[in-house]
Design a protein around this nucleic acid. Structure first.
Length: 371
RNA sequence: GGACAGGUGGGUGAGUGGUUAAAGCCAACAGACUGUAAAUCUGUCCCUCCUUGCGAGGUACGAAGGUUCGAAUCCUUCCCUGUCCA
């Protein structure tokens, strides 16, 4: 049975520690979920994700996998877990974010999103119901409702209409799921939208809570707004969400932002930053960002992060990593991604530990002081 | 020795009389990246100066001369490289 077990709550901040029980294993929260859009976390093997990083849950994307290879193919091959050899939990995004990022290729109607494939221009329609069907075919453990990720800035009226549609879509998706698919082993998360308007966020959250979902997401953040505003939106939303359900902020954040979201009652996060920035030569360390391509690392014998225990830091110098980057070697991407994801997961493990032993306020203060 | 072809900024390689300090690509250097249309994208990339501007000078297309108002582009000589023939 899919359920969330709340283990500890920080009395001072809103931070919580818990366990998300899924059909594909337990996920200790707060958790960071590596993004594996096309049934692979770019640059890294599932084996390393499993053994080296001990990731418990990763993301897949409905939009991408629907277009290629297609849900039928994935289902025929035993579902996403079997297809990509990932035995642990998988959360699938609905394609709502692509509605936002592929805005030149789509048209939104009440029925759903009419869009053209970025691969070959073929027209497709995503509806709240169809995206659930696709995610079921993929075999997802945590499915996301189809939502509209609103661009920023957005006027109140437009944001309001869009958010109301997202709520209607969430109702349809949930109803469809309960009617056709729900066996208690997986979850569908509605997504709170509302742009940067507190009243819209609140109204949206309140309406979505009525759906009695197994978890809730906060979407539409980190779309170009100032950082403090993102946190503010999370902060006004989480108290309205059920205490006993996991809360997932979609698409965040920088390493130093993770503790901030947790302090506001967030249990789950995902972001492409650790993997994408890794490929682009940006490595996250306890001392901040290291742009490994810089000339200053040319002869640097030190590991990327002296305090890091990852395979990359245990075995390779900055000079070597820089060399691989400059040479365009794909091994660089692998080593860099391994390190960055390890950094993110380490942060989350530290956070969780701090909450469990009742020291989260201290952890948060130290984290802020380190910036 | 002879016949062709050719020598352009770190590398390639456009450019055959005038918005050319010289396209594009690569390298180098710096920056960006937040539910991944990303192994991507942006900027800088001869020197000096400043009031940092589609600014002002100075150098520059193998070398030296020449033609011309004006030459990387045309002419002469020289040097060098490649291919072929002796």
């Amino acid at each position: 049975m899919f359920h969330f077990e709340l283990q500890a709550t920080c009395p001072e901040t809103g931070a919580r520690a818990g366990i998300l029980h899924t059909a594909h294993g337990d996920v200790e929260t707060p958790v960071f979920m590596p993004v594996g859009t096309q049934a692979t976390v770019k640059g890294i093997l599932p084996r390393d994700l499993l053994n080296d990083l001990d990731a418990r849950i990763i993301l897949g994307n409905t939009y991408h996998l629907y277009l290629r290879p297609g849900p039928g193919t994935v289902k025929q091959l035993g579902g996403l877990h079997s297809f990509m050899a990932w035995p642990r939990a998988i959360l699938t995004d609905s394609g709502g974010f692509q509605v936002f990022s592929l805005n030149s290729l789509r048209k939104i109607t009440e029925e759903g999103v009419l869009f053209h494939s970025h691969l070959n221009g073929d027209p497709h329609l995503f509806t709240p119901e169809s995206t659930i069907d696709v995610q079921m075919a993929l075999g997802s453990d945590v499915m996301m409702v189809l939502d509209e990720c609103i661009e920023h800035p957005c006027d109140h009226g437009t944001a309001c209409r869009s958010t109301q549609r997202t709520v209607r879509w969430a109702r349809k998706a949930m109803a469809h799921f309960k009617e056709r698919h729900d066996d208690g082993n997986r979850a569908v998360f509605p997504i709170v939208q509302g742009s940067m308007y507190g009243d819209l966020r609140r109204a949206c959250a309140e309406q979505l809570v009525e759906l009695d979902a197994r978890g809730y997401a906060i979407g539409g953040l980190s779309v170009g707004e100032p950082r403090p505003l993102s946190l503010e939106m999370a902060e006004i939303t989480t108290p309205l969400l059920p205490r006993d359900k996991p809360r997932y902020v979609m698409g965040v954040g920088m390493p130093e932002e993770l503790p901030e979201y947790v302090a506001r009652g967030v249990d789950m996060m995902d972001c492409v930053l650790p993997s994408r920035n890794a490929r682009n030569g940006c490595l996250f360390t306890r001392q901040g960002k290291v742009s490994i391509k810089q000339n200053q690392y040319k002869d640097d014998q030190r590991p990327v992060d002296e305090a890091c225990g990852c395979y990359t830091c245990r075995n390779f110098s900055r000079a070597y990593l820089r060399h691989l980057f400059q040479a365009g070697e794909m091994t660089f991407s692998t080593l860099a991604t391994l390190h960055n994801l390890n950094r993110y997961l380490d942060i989350m493990r530290e956070i969780r530990q701090a909450i469990l032993i009742g020291k989260y306020p201290e952890y948060l203060r130290a984290s802020r002081a380190g910036q």
